[in-house]
Amino acid sequence: MKKILIFVLSIILIGTIVYYLFLKRTPYSIASNIAGFKVPTSLTVEQFQDNWINNPGGDGELFILFSFQESEKENLVTACKMNNYKPLPINDTLPDNFIYRYIKKENQSGFYKLEKDREDKRNYQITILNLQENKLIIYTVIY
């Protein structure tokens, strides 16, 4: 009986550690994954929507809006350059206008990275570093 109890407690403990170390989904962990560089936790999360539908196709939408201080600018710019981000304005055609609620089309101060799905042209993923308003924007939509 005691062995079973120890076994169960061990499983729970290992599960908890694995969850917090590798699986826990936070705005920072998601953003780091998508942006391609570590997004520091010193950035402030202004908006976070993580809406997934759990249907077979895995459809859903993710939006994170960070703000940051002047002191963080240089590191973020360096990270973008190292990850081959393009300079703003966005010259690619986007499948929808959602992102333009958060950045002006004519904004030329910053960087962006866009990934479009080849199979379904409505699917895309974009990261924008807006140096005009000191915002980092992450958006993904999957149909």
């Binding site: 699986l23 989904r25 962990s29 998601i30 994954n33 998508i34 993580d50 997934w52 539908i53 759990n54 196709g57 895995g58 859903g60 993710l62 799905d117 199979e119 993923q125 993904t140 999957i142």
Partner: peptide, 12 residues
């Protein structure tokens, strides 16, 4: 279409 882990929620 599976995506790299971390984009969708884990359950999704």
């Amino acid at each position: 279409d599976p995506k790299p882990w971390g984009i969708r929620s884990i359950m999704n």
